[in-house]
């Protein structure tokens, strides 16, 4: 999708990824942000609530909360309430360890929240190997509680070499629990970079996943798989990098970035402590450069109209430049698998 309305520039993102804290009670091997200990200077409650108001004024439709583990932040419910009071829809990515029935009942009252519980394997052995001891059972318990609530719930799985073969079975598990499955792309960011070579899916695994995805219309892939998306899923609008155009990311300390996978100093568009959100969105030269970004090296490719060069974040992490074309795109996977 090359959308002339998006190309003209929207007055605000459609949704924002907000990593509210770096604090996490797990140490997942593929964590994009190396979460564990809270960042030194995370936004205060007052700053966070002011940011919610700024998002509301700008017209942001949805905030996707991640981290770290969002529920580790003591004022997280207050931030959520502020969003819901303003009609902003929210989605929370959580490891599920801190969810219990009373909390789910409280969350369900807003009717504006969706929850993704991370689960990276179809059984205890495979999930715990990536996320830590006991995480499978804990996530399963959280999903079970959520499935009995009105909250739209999904299992969120990061596709890795270790679990690629389990994805169809995870899909069945999600169905049996009455929730959906969302598969996210593994990127060499944070601790994911340290474990990249071991956990990186092979080209064959990515091709097999792409084929399976084409046949599994109810599986969500969210942000990440447009470069792998086959023709059958084009109608789902998964073929465009929305960074700085439809979406953006704010980190725990109020820094704004194009997306959650590019939270490096090189990609800092501005800080909430120095500028308003609207100023950053409208005036940041970095965001402007992402809106102008064209992957010329991919323009001759037969799939260019479908993926527009793929994920700039993966290109940057693997090739050192955002305009280098996605090294794990469908075309490259075919070439690498044949080689």
């Amino acid at each position: 999708m090359s959308n002339r309305f998006v190309d003209q520039g929207l007055r605000a993102p459609v949704n924002v990824t907000w990593e509210v804290t770096l604090a996490c009670n797990l140490r997942c091997r593929h964590c994009l942000s190396s979460s564990g200990v809270a960042a030194a200077n995370e936004l205060t409650t007052a700053e966070a609530l002011d940011l919610v108001e700024q998002f509301s004024q700008a017209g942001v439709f949805q905030i996707n909360f991640g981290g770290g583990e969002p529920f580790m932040r003591p004022d997280f419910l207050q931030i959520l309430d502020a969003c819901h009071d303003r009609g902003i829809m929210t989605c929370i990515s959580t490891n599920g360890t801190l969810l219990n029935r009373p909390l789910v009942e409280r969350l369900a009252k807003s009717r504006l929240v969706a929850i993704q519980v991370s689960m990276d394997g179809v059984d205890r052995k495979s999930c715990d190997a990536l996320r830590g001891d006991g995480t499978y059972e804990t996530a399963l318990r959280a999903v079970d509680i959520l499935a009995k609530s009105p909250i739209p719930t999904s299992i969120n799985t990061v596709l890795t070499a270790a679990n690629a073969a389990d994805i169809p079975e995870l899909h069945n598990l999600a169905r049996s629990l009455g929730v959906s499955l969302r598969v996210s792309r593994f990127r060499p960011s944070g601790r994911g970079a340290e474990n990249w070579e071991e956990l990186r899916p092979t080209p064959r695994q990515l091709l097999d996943f792409s084929t399976w995805l084409a046949e599994s219309g109810d599986v969500r892939t969210g942000d990440s798989f447009f470069s792998l998306t086959s023709q059958e899923r084009q109608g789902l609008g998964l073929n465009l990098c929305g960074a700085a155009k439809l979406t953006c990311c704010v980190g725990p300390e109020g820094g704004f970035y194009p997306c959650a996978f590019l939270q490096q100093e090189d990609f800092l568009a501005g800080s909430l402590r120095e500028q308003s959100f609207q100023q950053i969105w409208d005036e940041s030269p970095l965001y402007a450069s992402f809106r102008r970004l064209r992957i010329h090296s991919c323009e001759e490719c037969q799939r260019f109209d479908q993926c527009h060069g793929g994920c700039p974040a993966v290109a940057w992490h693997l090739k050192g430049r955002i305009d280098g074309g996605d090294p794990e795109c469908l075309e490259n996977c075919v070439t690498m698998a044949e080689a």
């Binding site: 309305f5 003209q8 520039g9 929207l10 007055r11 605000a12 017209g59 439709f61 009609g87 829809m89």
Partner: peptide, 9 residues
């Protein structure tokens, strides 16, 4: 589940 806002277009 839907929202609407004003844009230039």
């Amino acid at each position: 589940a839907c929202r609407v806002r004003k844009e230039r277009f």
